[in-house]
């Protein structure tokens, strides 16, 4: 009689565990669509690449293009830019990176125009704007100074400007993303 009762008891326990656990799993599964809907939608993901015609960008000129809703800066580096950038001692840098590591195909410097501190867009990509103490870009929000290679030199930003994935599909066309 005792064994019967115990058997019944453990069966019931097992059933209860399966039931309530199953309910919990279902609730979590139901939550997934509610979470995942906030991830980028298909039409947003489809805009993952931007094609740019670079034939008209003269030496020493900057242009700004949009990629995934963010500004991307393309600079046609001058010979002087390259010499200035290479003359810097890497040990002086917060985020040591030689110019070659930031450029896929010279003389094109392609970087995301967003300060790595808190996301402002630095000044200096258009002529007439302040370019900071290192003659590159200057973020007015909290005073981050970037040099002509887009490397952080002074101020609170932790990293150099990010370089987006990009490739040169021809001599005149740049594919970002």
């Amino acid at each position: 009689m005792t064994t019967d009762a115990e058997g019944g008891g453990s069966r019931r326990d097992f059933l209860n565990i399966v039931g309530w656990t199953g309910l919990g799993i279902g609730a979590v599964a139901f939550a997934w669509p509610l979470v995942h809907q906030m991830n980028p939608a298909a039409d947003v993901l489809a805009l993952a690449t931007t094609r740019v015609d670079i034939s008209a960008i003269a030496e020493g000129m900057n242009v700004t293009v949009m990629w995934q809703g963010r500004p991307v800066w393309i600079r046609h580096l001058t010979e002087e830019d390259i010499q200035t950038a290479n003359a810097v001692d890497l040990n002086d840098l917060r985020d040591p990176e030689p110019l070659e590591a930031r450029v896929i195909q010279s003389p094109w410097l392609v970087q995301i125009g967003i300060c790595t501190h808190l996301g402002c867009v630095p000044l200096g990509n258009r002529s007439g704007e302040p370019r900071g103490d290192f003659d590159g870009w200057f973020c007015p929000c909290h005073g981050s100074h970037y040099d002509i290679a887009g490397r952080i030199r002074r101020g609170p930003a932790p990293r150099n400007l990010d370089v987006p994935p990009h490739e040169f599909v021809s001599d005149t066309e740049l594919l970002i993303g």
Binding site: P33, L34, H36, Q37, N39, A41, A42, D43, V44
Partner: peptide, 12 residues
């Protein structure tokens, strides 16, 4: 757009 592009949009 919800029906076609948003993740699980059709379900919601």
């Amino acid at each position: 757009r919800i029906m076609r592009d948003v993740n699980y949009g059709w379900l919601l």
